[in-house]
């Protein structure tokens, strides 16, 4: 079942000289993992920005549950419907792992009776115990930070998980662990997991690969 659909999506730089994305059409479904591949400059990150609602597109459309993405509240979309995991984690360093997850729940206004308990559960789900959960972000390793980022993205139970090079800063072993987590999220919890990646190893582990090519 399609959860997100790209229809003739185009994106042009603000100076209007060059298309980054041109007439992209694709359909993403729940319960599957997708790898968005492409060479540098092919528009992977731009596509991620558009799908995550961080930027607005000029041509074509992105349909989320029959709604045009450009016409909905993107802040609400980001804190409710889509969880984003970045290569550089993008966690708040002055907070602990648990606090980062709770903050995300606060922003999404998700109704949870005990947010701390829920945060600990989520962290355990991605392989972090409570002791590590009480550490400040900078006291955690790269792999652990990425797990926190995944736990944070799951805190409001979104339908789509969008990961931008989630294993880019990690070693091979940790990469596999993170990929296991993401695959499980798709297959067991029926999330739509999109992974922007360069890695062939990652691409091998997903259900479908969507390759972007340079427009010029």
């Amino acid at each position: 079942m399609s959860v997100l659909e790209l229809k003739n999506l185009s994106y042009i730089y603000s100076d209007g000289t060059e298309y980054v994305l041109k007439n992209i059409s694709y359909s993403f479904e729940k319960g599957k993992t997708y790898a968005i591949k492409g060479r540098s400059g092919s528009g992977k990150t731009t596509l991620l920005s558009l799908i995550s609602g961080l930027e607005r597109y000029q041509e074509g459309s992105i349909i989320f549950h029959d709604k045009e993405l450009n016409q909905i509240d993107l802040d609400h979309y980001r804190n409710t419907n889509i969880g984003i995991v970045f290569q550089s984690f993008n966690l708040l360093p002055h907070l602990t792992a648990i606090e980062n997850v709770i903050l995300s729940m606060d922003i999404s206004k998700v109704k949870v009776e005990n947010k701390r308990k829920k945060a600990i559960e989520l962290l355990k789900k991605v392989g972090l115990d409570e002791e590590k959960g009480n550490r400040r972000i900078l006291k955690l390793s790269g792999g652990e930070q990425q797990r926190v980022a995944i736990a944070r993205s799951l805190s409001y139970n979104p339908e789509i998980i969008l990961a931008d090079e989630p294993t880019g800063n990690l070693d091979k072993e940790t990469e596999d662990e993170i990929m296991d987590i993401l695959t499980n999220l798709a297959h067991k919890e029926k999330k739509c997991v999109m992974i922007v990646t360069h890695s062939n190893n990652v691409a091998k582990q997903v259900d479908q690969v969507f390759e972007l090519k340079k427009t010029n």
């Binding site: 409710t80 993008n90 708040l92 999404s108």
Partner: peptide
């Protein structure tokens, strides 16, 4: 950076 993160995770 903090502002960017907060905005990214959907804070108005």
């Amino acid at each position: 950076y903090e502002i960017g993160v907060l905005r990214t995770i959907g804070m108005k």
